[in-house]
Write a protein that binds this DNA or RNA. Structure first.
Lengths: 133, 133
DNA sequence: CGTTCACATTACGTGAACGTCATCTACGTG
DNA sequence: CACGTAGATGACGTTCACGTAATGTGAACG
């Protein structure tokens, strides 16, 4: 069944994207499906990458930023200096993400506060309505 | 000094955006600066909104989505049903954000894992290098 | 009074991220 | 073999979020 290779259609259904999107990501070198004849076949690696792409998008990263992030996960047989550089970038990214989570937590707290206020407003309005009857 | 009103230039410097951006946000009804003659003057409320806009952007919300979120903070003298509806939407948004934070936490953990792996690779490569000397 | 700012409006331009359409190919099926 | 189906390849179109002139205006300054 899951022969480790998926057609473009299967990918689309699994991850809820269009063929156009997958071809676009390939053109941008975010995915590297292998070819059988002229058809694309997506590997396990492509699927892992796609998940990261979609996740990145949800957090407002551009495809170019995502591409760089993906490189952090690929780490082929490069030079030590290259890997070290990649490692540094990854550390910075990690800090970014942690800062982001802080901010998100802040935003959540703010909204919660706002909701408590909203509850009070609603409650008092219900009171007024009753009193008016 | 901070007379509660800021010119467009002051806003730009404070929040690191261009005049174009602020006018654009006004056109999109995200900000509502008052007018003195034909000049715009941004209020405390506009500044609070702008902060939320910029924050929303960092999390990948579209301006339209942000506009809806901003409405949650404005809550004028509406009907009870309106406020209740707004309240419900806010609750849903809150759940979205909490889910997002979960996902972000997952992403952070993934990247940390990857970094540990990177450290090992670097260490072993340094060993190889030494051995080759 | 002319000029320089600071800000305004109007309008066309741009890059990112796809959507859409036309056309082509390869493959299995009745 | 005709035909439908799945996928491929351009190429142009679209939306969003502004950028970038071009031009106008009102207050201030030498």
């Amino acid at each position: 069944m899951t022969e480790d290779l998926m057609t473009i259609r299967e990918m689309c259904e699994t991850y809820d994207v269009t063929p156009r999107t997958l071809r676009f990501y390939e053109a941008k070198e975010l995915l590297f499906p292998i070819r059988e004849g002229q058809k694309r076949l997506f590997t396990k690696s492509d699927r892992a990458r796609l998940k990261l792409i979609l996740r990145g998008k949800r957090f407002g990263f551009s495809l170019e930023e995502i591409r760089q992030l993906l490189d952090l996960y690929h780490v082929g047989d490069q030079q030590l200096t290259q890997i070290s550089r990649t490692y540094e970038i990854a550390c910075e990214r990690l800090e970014d993400m942690e800062a982001r989570r802080e901010e998100l937590t802040q935003a959540i707290d703010d909204l919660k506060e706002q909701l408590r206020w909203g509850e009070k407003v609603i409650a008092s309005m219900k009171q007024d309505k009753k009193a008016a009857e």
